[in-house]
Design a protein around this nucleic acid. Structure first.
Lengths: 179, 179
DNA sequence: GGAAATTTTGAAAATGAATTTCATTTTCCT
DNA sequence: AGGAAAATGAAATTCATTTTCAAAATTTCC
């Protein structure tokens, strides 16, 4: 019943880039090399990625693109409704491509850090019902399940142990600004 | 069906303070005037409160109690399992008293900022089911419904318009440290 | 094609909440 | 009371995020 979603990346990238360009024109904003590169990488990567992640990926090839621009471009995608921001338990802001009517929740593995999306109509209905019975009118919800995925088992064993939280971030690494 | 919870504050305050003192002794920690004041205020207030909030309340009467101590005491309550931390959409860390088997979710009003708790067994079961079907073993979940409460209606009208998000925080006010 | 107008960019600085440091004070134990 | 250990408060630090500002790029208009 909870249907796994097809990865939002992969196809439709050029269509989305079109949508962005339309948005830019409508608002009197400009198309730039940087925006194109960033958006392409973002859409290609798929989702649940931080500005930092994208910045790192991109700056391997394009040392001249700064973190700030990546950050701003991602915000732009949010404004143009081509992406959404999400903040999970590690308190990092992640972005994911958004397609129109899209609505889903997340399963987050505490072992490997993987994030799986799911959709469940019954859940949605139940949420509505609960809200209604309390006199609420819901406009949004947030639902995250934390646990261990199949590969990571149920506890300390297995898993790639992706850090994720800032508590135990191992890499020192300062100053995210480039140059 | 979604049962509203009785306010966790009000009664059992002294019992909880007992539990805290037991915890302190067990760990070789000390009872102090500050801790007592902070914990009393926290339990009295109820829940969904930030360290800042408590600090402000307390420092009216006790100018000698610093923010740091409030912060640390709240963390202590979390460690001793008398409270939990929650982070909602405004990215502020809130604390709420926790009683043993306690398990609930939240309805958050975007109008007045009120936070209502609810419990729903059906929801829990559904979450388990969804996780299981994806091969996940859940250890925790987070579920928040955002909308407008009865008093705030369905949109721009009514409501006390408590700021809440940092986007439009009106009060300037710097330096949370005291003195 | 070129200049003006406007937007974008990148580095650095600022912000703001959370957390740590450190010197001093307080509590606990005997 | 005396001494060891923990707690406290102010200030400093951290860290992601956001803003600032001068220089560079894009678009528009002639």
């Amino acid at each position: 019943m909870p249907k796994r979603r097809k990865p939002a990346g992969a196809r439709g990238i050029s269509e989305k880039k079109e949508l962005l360009n339309t948005f830019l024109k409508e608002w009197g904003l400009k198309s730039t090399r940087q925006r194109d590169i960033i958006v392409t990488e973002f859409l290609k990567t798929g989702g649940h990625i931080t500005a930092e992640d994208i910045y790192r990926k991109i700056s391997k090839k394009h040392q001249d693109i700064g973190f700030t621009t990546v950050y701003r471009t991602l915000k732009l995608l949010v404004k143009s409704r081509l992406a959404t921001e999400r903040v999970f338990a590690d308190n990092l802001t992640r972005y994911e491509p958004l397609s129109a009517e899209d609505h889903h929740d997340h399963l987050i593995c505490l072992g490997c850090g993987s994030i799986t999306e799911f959709e469940n109509a019954r859940m949605e209905r139940l949420q509505e019902k609960i809200a209604r019975e309390s006199g609420f009118n819901t406009v949004a919800h947030k639902m995250e399940l934390y646990g261990y995925c199949g590969r990571c088992g149920s506890g300390s064993r297995g898993g790639k142990k992706q850090p994720g939280t800032k508590k135990n971030a191992p890499a020192p690494q300062k100053n995210r600004n480039n140059r």
